[in-house]
Design a protein around this nucleic acid. Structure first.
Lengths: 193, 193
DNA sequence: GGCCAACTAGACAAAGCATTCTAAAATGCC
DNA sequence: GGCATTTTAGAATGCTTTGTCTAGTTGGCC
């Protein structure tokens, strides 16, 4: 080792999340990221091979944090708790929540996909999340029936809570307490199986 | 009148929807729209003053069609039917559904907002939709309680059904029959008030 | 104390974009 | 048939972006 780095990989990742959370994917230009960190654009390319790599790394970091919060609850068979866990996670990770939950990877990476290692890492995370859902659903049904049960679980635990949160994540204020109630009520009225 | 137009306003609007539905907002460059229609780029500017105007016009058209399908049902006090109506509308308007339901206006217009007339037209549509929800919720509660009831209705009738549809709209295939069942069950288990 | 790899620094080149501009073509009307 | 005007047609312009390239700087180690 020789010269100490002024800017870490994480500095750029955090700046990217902040910019996307604030102004959408297009706001995260390499120059905007550099400006946010206080670095020249060239420095980013010492850590990331391309813009797609920065976005991909940021996405994977946010997604890993999210999956890390939910997967254990799914594996221990507590779908309701998993759904409700999205709220504290979003409150504690406001920037990540806006970045992760208000963007689709397909639009984030629409121009150029991230390099292969990042794509594979993301695929592993998605598989991990999927496996957690399957473990939670258990061995209920076969074939199409099983797929329906899985779609049901993903809706109840992931998509529906996020749909409840989305308007408030957009506005940017604090998440209202009745969000909790709505999720609980949803799970009371429409059980997993 | 003198020379007959080869390309109509609608040609460009439909092309824009198709491109965004296929490859996200960034795919709808002026040149891509022109290519899709078979026109030179300059011709677009005879009908629309800017790219934001094309996107805005496309968004308003899709949104008007959607609101037109749901608002009457809300006004006649049939929230369940309104929620279920999203399915046939999406099946009959696959391209519009992907364009409208998988994109947020905030990301679509993040760079430059559409010109004032289109913005106002969109605001009117949003007000119309909001009024339909308020009419459906009726006079239940005051102040915060009323706002909660409204958020509840919007979730049950709009956001939740779309959350159910989203994975399938993404994949692009036909919408599965169990989507209908899930929406019905959701409304059975978690009533409006 | 000097060496040298890793880094900062920012100008630069190349590509793609929205928008404009000039020229030509079409068509209802006189 | 010729004119006025709308439209097609597509090249040209200027801006913004990503990614590269050359210089110069830092700081641990011999």
């Amino acid at each position: 080792m020789v010269r100490t780095a002024r800017f870490t990989e994480d500095d750029f990742i955090e700046a990217t999340m902040a910019l996307v959370a604030e102004g959408g994917p297009a706001a995260a230009t390499m120059q905007a990221i550099a400006r946010q960190v206080g670095a020249p654009t060239g420095s980013i390319y010492h850590r990331f091979e391309s813009r797609a790599a920065v976005l991909g790394a940021a996405w994977n970091a946010a997604y890993a944090s999210f999956v890390g919060a939910l997967a254990p609850l799914l594996h221990s068979g507590r779908p309701r708790e998993a759904a409700l866990a999205i709220l504290p996670w979003s409150r504690e990770n406001a920037r990540r929540a806006r970045f992760l939950l208000l963007n689709e990877p397909v639009t984030l990476f629409e121009d150029t996909p991230p390099p292969a290692p990042l794509r594979q890492a993301l695929e592993r995370l998605e598989d991990e999340f999927d496996a957690a859902f399957r473990a939670c659903v258990g061995a209920c049904g076969e074939g199409d029936l099983r797929e329906e049960a899985l779609a049901r679980a993903k809706f109840l635990i992931f998509d529906a809570p996020i749909a409840i949160l989305r308007p408030h994540l957009m506005k940017g204020g604090t998440l209202p307490p009745f969000a909790e109630r709505m999720i609980a009520e949803l799970h009371a009225g429409m059980p997993l199986a």
